[in-house]
Amino acid sequence: MTKSLKMPILKMTARNVSVAYGSKIAINNVSIDVDQDEVVAFIGPSGCGKSTFLRTLNRMNDTVASARVTGEIKLDGQDIYSPDMDVVQLRARVGMVFQKPNPFPKSIYENVAYGPRIHGLAGAKADLDRIVEKSLRRAGLWDEVKDRLSDSGTALSGGQQQRLCIARAIAVDPEVILMDEPCSALDPIATAKIEELIHELRGRYAMVIVTHNMQQAARVSQKTAFFHLGSLVEYGNTSDIFTNPREERTKDYITGRYG
């Protein structure tokens, strides 16, 4: 018997998640599912909590002393906020790319080798070389840097730096990649390259991308979540959200009536 319809596999689920910074509530009761082979886009006016919510998915909010997260977030059915969850393991499985490219002031090679080294993924030097090459190839950067792997990562152009950061995240073989406005500091050509890269990586990793660029959300994602004032207003197929939104607020936002 052949299946023409593949059942989506749930990668991450968030249920009734709220986040407060001290007494200020930044995310209020949000529930979202992220499928194995999908790209999910988070859109919404700035300050509505997109980054905050994204950072709950790999517990980066732990680094903010005042942040408190409630609700339930699961990765492959396992509660990531439970006491037996190892944050080190979690962040190796859920990688992150930041708004501003932040390569370490080390060589290109060392930037990519950073994760494999701390997680002990490579035994011999040859293994590490292979991981570095594979990651740089997947990030579409190999041909541009293969002759200068020992140059500093900070000497690359902005777009190359961001792809280096993606390669760095890929190097530990994550299952999910979170991207917080990865193109907002880049020019249109570099942006196009990153979008192309997201297309290529789709299926291999589940991806969540925050963007303030509506066309970008429409181009790269299969699902879109619209946040407003800390709440999830609407979540659904990207095509539906952009052509036929259910909520008035979503429609106002995507037609540019405010934001």
Partner: peptide, 8 residues
């Protein structure tokens, strides 16, 4: 942040 997000 970049390093912590790598699981360091």
């Amino acid at each position: 942040d970049g390093s912590l997000a790598m699981g360091a």
